[in-house]
């Protein structure tokens, strides 16, 4: 027993074990959100979705997963073999690496980096590379359209995302996500979206700008994860399936896993930066490390739900409108917000 304990407490083993927690979380969460997406979509559309596998079809995500596992992994002959095989893992790796800095609770964060936010922005750009690889390597005209669209879109929307993250870090005064969350601890009134823990006058002055920033962050994150109305990279009615047209079996499932993981990631970032992360909305009531996990996941899930809701309601933007929205609407507004917030904080 002691030897086991000694083995487990070696730094390397410990970090591997701690690092595996998000992976387990992602897989469990992906099954839940797959079910949720189908059910929410169905109820929005006045139907029931799956009802036969288990109670209200709860076993269906498992069945789907098993089916995908068994499917043949088709690699087109003319495809760039190496890039084609590697692309789904690159996409997933980019998303998964970003989970390292997510503060799930006051005592658990994969890697408590001082440059956490910076790391997050940097490493999640890997997703773009992966999608571009997939689009290019498929050797399919529709796939390359999807890949290029995706690159243009994600690079454009990283600007507003990063800028709105800047707003939160300016107010909290730290790039460490754990610190940003701790800054907001103590109840709903301390959340950065409502001005954080600043003196009252500053808080009231800052409030409109943080609200705008938050809305923009939300819009930009929907675009970051390529979901309707910004799902151009896979735009089914235009590009068949976009960058993942040629994929099948587990590699295809990998893209989906990455998409859902990304969905949670952007929601979790928005929650950590603006909505108090793991801190309870009721001050010290129902707070603590374990409740922290609950609050963190629940808050993020609300956003996941909202993104699903939007997806099944809105049509899709066109490429030029998409870029217009990013460069000419969101980014200028954010610059204005940053300048205003900067003045308020200094004054």
């Amino acid at each position: 027993m002691d030897s086991l304990y000694a083995f487990l407490s070696q730094p390397l083993v410990l970090s591997v074990l701690l690092g595996a927690i998000p992976l387990v979380f992602i897989i469990v969460y992906a099954l839940v959100v797959l079910y949720m997406e189908m059910k929410v979509a169905a109820h929005i559309q006045d139907r029931l979705a799956y009802m036969r596998t288990g109670w209200h079809g709860v076993l269906q995500p498992f069945a789907d997963m098993l089916k995908l596992l068994q499917k043949e992994d088709v690699v087109p002959v003319q495809a760039d073999q190496f890039l084609f095989r590697v692309a789904p893992y690159v996409v997933f790796a980019g998303t998964y690496a970003a989970y390292a800095v997510l503060p799930f609770s006051s005592i658990y964060v994969g890697a408590n980096l001082n440059l956490g936010v910076f790391f997050l922005i940097a490493v999640s750009s890997l997703v773009v590379a992966g999608i571009l690889m997939a689009g290019w390597a498929s050797n399919n005209k529709w796939a390359i359209f999807g890949g290029l669209r995706s690159a243009a879109q994600m690079i454009s929307y990283e600007i507003p995302t990063a800028l709105s993250i800047v707003v939160a870090t300016m107010i909290a005064g730290s790039l460490n996500l754990q610190d940003v969350t701790r800054f907001q601890d103590g109840g709903i009134q301390n959340w950065i979206v409502f001005g954080g823990t600043l003196p009252l006058t500053q808080k009231l002055l800052i409030l409109p700008f943080t609200l705008i920033t938050f809305v923009i962050l939300f819009v930009a994150s929907v675009a970051e994860v390529n979901r309707t109305p910004f799902d151009l990279p896979e735009a089914e009615s235009e590009l068949v399936q976009g960058f993942n047209t040629e994929y099948s079996g587990m590699r295809f499932a990998m893209f989906y896993l990455a998409e859902y993981a990304n969905l949670f990631l952007v929601s979790a970032v928005a929650v950590s930066l603006f909505l108090g992360g793991w801190s309870s909305p009721f001050g010290s009531f129902l707070s603590g490390p374990v409740w922290g996990i609950f609050w963190f996941v629940m808050k993020a899930m609300v956003f996941v739900f909202m993104q699903i809701w939007i997806r099944w309601t809105l049509p899709r933007l066109r490429v030029d409108q998409l870029l217009y929205t990013s460069w000419k609407v969101l980014t200028p507004w954010l610059f204005a917000c940053i300048v205003a917030i900067g003045f308020i904080l200094v004054a």
């Binding site: 006045d46 099944w312 899709r316």
Partner: peptide
């Protein structure tokens, strides 16, 4: 036409 524009739900509503 809703599907063409990326909105899936109107399609199912109209089919009902």
């Amino acid at each position: 036409y809703g599907i063409d524009s990326g909105a899936f739900t109107p399609f199912l509503y109209s089919f009902i």
